[in-house]
Nucleic acid binder design. Structure first.
Lengths: 340, 340
DNA sequence: CTGAAAGCGCTAACAG
DNA sequence: CTGTTAGCGCTTTCAG
């Protein structure tokens, strides 16, 4: 591995001149430039970004802290981040908190030690501790997809409340009375928003009975388990709202095991789409979030913050999209329902 | 952001003593240690990994260079890498070559400039250029999932040839005569292996007619397009082998559009599973690769190489698993086929 | 236009 | 046990 000094020696110039050539400064005479360029290729010189970053106090690196890197929603989001980052000349480091707040904090610490220029986080909980850490170290922070609680911070997200309300209205329109929400962790504000939005359509707007609300994790197993429990209760819900894509998949597994048909016996609606591509036979009715755009937009917000350290916190809310497929079924036969 | 010097000044000791405390050296008197520790927490000191790495000539970072970070097979693999890396105290940087060799090389360059300790690559082509670059810069390289061509290098992969042969034998056993392979890029050695394995079972072992082989990309669109073409040809294949999961999905889309039923009209078998979790209704017959374990194992190989720079190249081949689901169908009715 | 000096934050190597 | 010296590879600053 050759250094600037090696190249300089070979070209018979000072390291500074080599540095200028490498960085495209025009204050170098053509003659020396040619000599240096030859030496550069002869030695196969490769700059050491570590040294450069140490000096420049900038690494051109941003971190994306995800709760679950196997969830296609988040990998699509990551793809959006990576694309936008690369366009801006930044490298992305990806880290996986596994939906655990303590792990998220530990990872954030690690990333700060690596002197990343900024951090994008999909908070595993309220995000408060992670935000505080970034603040203390003066590193820009953007919350992605999930609204942090009680702290002012840059946020890029979709309107979970409005999206869930759409699904609630759909369910109401189809004639359902007994509904269930299989929610995420109660500690994640976004999970609460989804419950609230659904409840608003069902109870506040339609005057129907309170939906059954079960809290769990954003995982397939938890979705399966919650669905099992929900279907045993009386009155048995005829419509189930799964608060994210993995919970929806788990729900479908559970219903399959129980021999409950979708949508004939139970209607299912979900939040977060699977990439269209991956849905071999389009099936699940969902409110889809623009995952890739969420990623792009968060990089934009971070760049804005880097250029503008002291501006006010901004919140970007991207629209959701209701995608009606088969799982929500047709209007149910009210006459066939047991009387209240 | 406080430095070792700041802490040292505050504690009234030399920076070196602070360094010793931070790094857990026991050669510090209890009295000084206490003073330093207090100063450490008071200042909220956070080590600068950049400076440490520059000095130590080691970044404790490895890179994973993927051809498609939206493919669940690769994200599962990445999850395996991340898990193993973290266990070994390493951070993983993820980069996305988009199945382009030039992009892969450009990214590898960038990663080397960042002084990563090692690189794991799922080569977009033969991998030759990338391997050469790493060699020149003396950075350990492990090829993952795809065998590089013509170069000796550490490899972790599954036996594509054997897996494809299994699928070929299955297809033969079901009574098919006219088969098609929707392969990946002809430049990727692994794609060629899959064609070879399938062909071996069909032609060499069963003496059936040559399968129709179409080359394309490992994408849903390409799979769809190849399937469209294959189904128009005469004799129309009754069994189709999709050489990766995205090609398989594209194939299913195409058949759906054409009104061709699976498996009644055409049997479909694939390579690379979707994570079990994501297959809402298990359907596709595949040879599944152990994606997570491929990731784990490649980190193991890289660690071995780091500890052992001059050992011979090693190749780890993990077994595939035949998963028979509905898409392959039952034995076909030979009498119903047109005569040869 | 070119180069010498200094230092980013940290630690290996040595001296006391 | 503690501190000093030197330097990782690069670039900012200033002098020639």
């Amino acid at each position: 591995m050759s250094t600037l000094h090696d190249v300089a020696k070979r070209a018979g110039v000072s390291p500074m001149t080599v540095s200028r050539v490498v960085n495209g400064s025009d204050a170098v005479s053509p003659k020396l430039r040619a000599r240096v360029e030859r030496a550069l290729t002869e030695t196969g010189y490769m700059p050491n970004k570590l040294a450069r970053s140490l000096r420049a106090r900038r690494t051109d690196t941003i971190a994306l802290l995800l709760p679950d890197m196997t969830n296609p929603f988040f990998t699509t989001l990551a793809h959006g981040v990576e694309t936008a980052a690369r366009e801006a000349g930044l490298t992305m480091i990806l880290a996986n908190s596994d939906e655990r707040e303590d792990e998220e904090l530990r990872l954030a610490q690690l990333l700060l030690e690596r002197q990343v220029d900024g951090i994008l986080v999909v908070p595993a909980g309220t995000g408060a501790a992670t935000i505080r850490l970034c603040r203390e170290n003066d590193v820009p922070f953007v919350a992605v997809d999930r609204r942090p609680e009680g702290v002012e911070a840059d946020v890029v997200r979709t309107d979970s409340e409005a999206g869930a309300r759409l699904l609630g209205q759909l369910v109401v329109g189809l004639g359902h009375r007994n509904t269930a929400v299989l929610a995420g962790p109660a500690t994640v504000p976004t999970a609460a928003d989804r419950v609230a939005g659904f409840r608003r359509a069902i109870v506040d707007e339609a005057g129907l009975p309170e939906p059954l609300v079960l809290y769990g994790a954003f995982t397939i197993d938890s979705g399966r388990e919650m669905a099992m429990r929900a279907l045993e209760l009386a009155p048995r819900p005829t419509a189930v709202f799964a608060a994210n894509n993995f919970i929806a998949i788990g729900t479908l597994h559970a219903l399959d095991e129980l021999g409950v048909r979708v949508p004939e016996d139970v209607a299912v609606v979900g939040f977060d789409d699977l990439p269209e591509a991956m849905v071999t036979f389009p099936f699940l009715t969902v409110v889809a979030q623009p995952a890739f755009e969420l990623g792009r937009e968060s990089v934009a917000l971070l760049l804005h913050r880097l250029a503008n350290p002291d501006g006010p916190a901004r919140e970007v809310v991207l629209p959701t999209r209701l995608v009606i497929r088969r799982s929500s079924g047709s209007p149910i036969d009210v006459a066939a329902l047991p009387a209240d």
